[in-house]
Write a protein that binds this DNA or RNA. Structure first.
Length: 492
RNA sequence: GGCCCCAUCGUCUAGUCUGGCCUAGGACAUCAGGUUUUCAUCCUGGUAACAGGGGUUCGAAUCCCCUUGGGGUCACCA
């Protein structure tokens, strides 16, 4: 059967050695989108052949991250499937068979060179500015001798016998035709001395066993592809189709790394990035629906997804645009949802009680800041000044409070406010009256009032601020500020 | 260094396969105005790119070659 007519089966194959990387998340996303757009299957396979490094905790956090992004898998951990197991550490029998076959058919051979020897050879070659491939001494050792040395207990690895003089052609969906010469490929290690197979070997073996039709992965794997294709050829199987996605770059133009910002999806979750915004943004990195569409839903993506619309060049992770997108999502969220998203951050900061998810002040806070947030966590410093203790006056506020008659004005506003029912029906009108009586512009009154109320000059309209603060706290802040100013006047 | 990939505004990109509709479109950022009691939002407008050089062609951002630049990779990691 030709690969093009095979049912679409794609996989994301994380190695549970840490949190899910942003790049990995996007790769998973593209795989998912392709499967969903083609009516195929999206599977997860855990690459845990390096027993030293993998951890259950990493796996859980990776699965959580994928779920958070809304990437559901049809086969894999926790859901099973017909092609399992989906943990490489549980697939040893499969690999064992292939090893034996490879040894028998001669495309795998035992290499007895020690790591130290190889290391030395590499260094020598580097010093002599020579290219070094591998130690060829064992490539043509007779089967009997190799067998004998193995029997004698000598440690060995299994190397893949790379044929010489061949062209390996990859018809990449994104990159077009890429040709490698087999002469450039070393006799790579397929099986470690402890019998654990290595990545390139199991990857091909499992992709074949799981009938993966399309391998969609990061461009850093492009150079591995010839090795994997050779495994298919040795097994007399047809390789899958490939699509190598460009890398996500940091501000420095290099592969995104911790140096230049958060690289783990978990970091973004913790900081309160809205999931649909991050989902959308990840798509925009290296993919476009058309010349205009910036914001789209999962359904619209599935509808429009096409491997041909993935670009070839690497993309810098543009946090400015991400923040804009997040803010846009937040502005469009129904208030109830936004409140639910914000509540955990406020609770964590001790600004609301665990059972307070629907109080009036909270609802007003949410409404007042909806258009001022780009991340959920940004509500915390804002709420702190309104729900918590009065924050210190910032520089601009101090300046606003330093004008002539400010103390007097605050007193007037406070007095007028005290006469009003609560919440005041028309606070702006009230301020206007005070301003008119004092023959001042409205701003001359609003500014100091705002400063007295919030300690700063920016923020939601004061009508909302009053409601969030409540009558008692509002009046207290105004009066305290008023008194402080009168005092300093009296003294000075 | 070898091999491989890539190259449009500062950034993400459309346009490239199937040359002409491109006086190169959109978005973010930025700048300037407007709305608003401040901030934010919102609206309007501006600045800003086909890396360079050769070809091919009536015509090239688009095809070919070279140069330059950037990236990836060279493990008993994945």
């Amino acid at each position: 059967m030709s690969t093009s007519s095979r049912p679409v089966r794609v996989r994301f194959a994380p190695s549970p050695t840490g949190m899910l990387h942003i790049g990995g998340a996007r790769t998973a996303l593209f795989n998912w989108a392709y499967a969903r757009s083609q009516g195929g299957k999206f599977l997860l396979r855990v690459e845990d052949t390096d027993t030293e490094r993998h951890s259950e905790q990493s796996l859980q956090s990776i699965l959580d991250s994928l779920r958070w992004l809304g990437l559901d898998w049809d086969e894999g951990p926790e859901v099973g499937g017909e092609y399992g197991p989906y943990f490489q550490s549980q697939r040893m029998e499969h690999y064992q068979q292939a090893m034996e076959r490879g040894l028998q058919e001669g495309w795998l051979y035992r290499c007895f060179a020690t790591p130290e020897e190889l290391q030395r050879q590499r260094e020598e070659a580097r010093a002599a500015k020579r290219n070094w491939k591998f130690d060829p001494r064992f490539r043509n050792l007779s089967a009997q001798e190799a067998e004998a040395r193995a029997q004698a207990g000598e440690a060995f690895v299994l190397r893949f016998r790379v044929p010489s003089g061949q062209s390996i052609v990859i018809d990449d969906h994104i990159r077009g035709q890429v040709v490698f010469s087999s002469d450039e490929v070393e006799d790579w290690v397929a099986v470690r001395p402890n019998c654990m197979p290595t990545y390139n070997f199991v990857c091909a073996l499992d992709d074949a066993a799981m009938e993966i039709s399309h391998v969609i992965r990061g461009e850093e794997h492009l150079v591995n592809t010839p090795k994997q294709i050779m495994v298919y050829q040795a097994l007399d199987l047809e390789p899958p189709q490939y699509a190598h996605v460009p890398l996500i770059l940091g501000k420095d133009g290099k592969k995104l790394s911790k140096r230049t910002g958060d690289t783990a999806l978990g970091d973004y979750i913790a900081k309160g990035y809205p999931a649909p915004a991050l989902f959308n943004f990840l798509c925009l990195l290296g993919f476009s629906i058309d010349d205009k569409t910036e914001i789209f839903s999962r359904e619209e993506l599935i509808q429009a997804f096409d491997l041909r619309r993935i670009s070839k060049a690497g993309a810098i992770f543009d946090t400015d645009k991400l923040h804009w997108l997040c803010g846009d999502f937040i502005r469009k969220m129904p208030l109830v949802e936004l409140r639910q998203a914000l509540a955990p951050f406020l609770q964590e900061a001790g600004l609301i009680d665990a059972d307070d998810s629907d109080s009036q002040p909270l609802n007003q806070l949410v409404a007042a800041f909806q258009e001022r947030l780009s991340l959920f966590s940004e509500i915390v410093p804002q709420a702190r000044g309104l729900f918590g203790e009065f924050p210190a006056y910032d520089e601009k506020a101090q300046k606003a409070l330093g004008g002539d008659n400010v103390g007097r004005i605050l007193g007037l506003v406070a007095a007028a406010l005290e006469q009003e029912s609560w919440p005041p029906a028309n606070f702006a009108g009230l301020v206007k009256e005070v301003a008119a009586a004092e023959e001042l512009g409205m701003g001359k009154v609003m500014k100091p009032v705002r400063a007295a109320l919030t300690g700063t000059l920016g923020g939601p309209d004061l009508g909302s601020v009053l409601q969030i603060l409540g009558r008692e706290r509002s009046l207290r802040r105004l009066k305290e500020c008023h008194l402080a100013l009168e005092d300093s006047l009296g003294q000075g």
